[in-house]
Computed example of a mutant assay.
Amino acid sequence: MKQTLYLGFILLLILSGATTAFAQGEEIETDRPDQTESSSLVPKGTLQLEAGYFFQKATEQGLSIRTHAYPTALVRVGVLDWLELRVLSALRDSVTENGKEREVSGLAPLNLGVKVKLWEEQGWRPEAAFLVRAALPVGSRSFRPDNPEPEIRLMFTNGITEKIDLAYNLTHSWVEGEPQKGYTLSLSGELLDKLTVYGEVFGSKRKGEKAEHQADIGVLYLLLPNLQLDVAAGKGLHASAPDFFVTTGVSYRLPR
């Protein structure tokens, strides 16, 4: 029932904007499905919805843990030419397998943030932006943190050619009170006017724990100038990382 309502809402948005989308002129840029947040902001006065389904399988201390998130939903609002507001959450469930199943489900923590443009690309100097956000102790008890968990992220993009971009992030966050550092590196290329593919590596390390490194590949298809479909899959690069994940979704920018 939840999935049906979600798909119906997306369909309503598509139908309402299909006619004006072609005249809008500005093609949508998204922060999904990869782990690398873009250094671009949504235009001033516009609202963008990025939503999808996420599945991950991980093995921890001999236990197999499957996690579903449906839908993940990121709402981005362009406030100024250099400022964007963001709200992120999801419905989640996790199943632990060890002879018998234990299912936990509920609402993921509410994540609030702002993205700030730092400077435009010039020569070898990359385009840059700054993101600060926090997971708040709001949501289902099984998933929400006891205290706010902030994250600081620097985002950079270099245009290698007109059709190839190199994007990378540096992150510093706090999870359960412990500092965590991370990175992402993504190379994307436009194969056709509406089709883009990318490859990515990313990782993180929390104090006192082993680092987790993963890699993924994905495809983005621009159905309309303000409507994008995507699919991606990835896997862990060593035992301490999740086994694999898949995600697919849709992103839509409301016409101005």
Rank of each mutant, 00 (worst) to 15 (best):
167 A>M: 03
181 K>W: 11
176 E>H: 05
77 V>Y: 14
158 N>M: 02
223 L>D: 02
215 A>D: 03
39 S>C: 06
175 V>W: 06
40 S>H: 12
127 E>A: 08
215 A>S: 13
76 R>S: 10
107 L>T: 10
23 A>R: 03
91 L>M: 07
97 E>V: 08
162 E>W: 05
205 K>R: 15
154 L>K: 06
23 A>F: 00
128 A>S: 13
136 L>C: 09
226 N>T: 15
139 G>K: 11
6 Y>F: 15
91 L>I: 08
159 G>M: 07
178 E>Q: 11
42 V>I: 02
27 E>V: 14
244 F>L: 04
85 L>G: 13
214 Q>A: 12
37 E>W: 07
39 S>A: 15
151 E>K: 15
72 T>Q: 14
46 T>A: 06
45 G>D: 08
35 Q>V: 07
93 D>G: 01
116 V>Y: 01
72 T>L: 10
212 E>K: 15
198 Y>E: 00
132 V>D: 04
191 L>H: 05
83 L>C: 06
142 S>N: 14
181 K>R: 11
254 L>K: 02
159 G>W: 09
179 P>H: 06
41 L>R: 05
120 E>Y: 03
86 R>W: 02
82 W>V: 02
110 L>A: 05
164 I>E: 08
184 T>K: 00
96 T>L: 08
76 R>D: 01
54 F>G: 08
98 N>R: 11
234 G>P: 05
102 R>H: 13
24 Q>G: 14
111 N>V: 08
133 R>M: 05
85 L>I: 08
142 S>A: 15
129 A>M: 00
163 K>L: 01
40 S>D: 08
111 N>D: 07
165 D>P: 02
40 S>Y: 11
154 L>S: 13
147 N>P: 03
36 T>W: 10
93 D>E: 13
13 L>P: 00
37 E>L: 12
117 K>N: 01
186 S>E: 14
18 A>R: 12
121 E>Y: 06
99 G>E: 11
1 M>N: 07
249 G>L: 04
247 T>L: 10
137 P>D: 10
203 G>K: 13
163 K>C: 00
107 L>M: 12
35 Q>T: 11
73 A>L: 15
33 P>I: 11
84 E>C: 05
194 K>W: 04
53 Y>T: 01
7 L>C: 09
116 V>D: 02
247 T>D: 02
92 R>D: 04
114 V>E: 03
117 K>V: 00
47 L>W: 11
240 S>P: 02
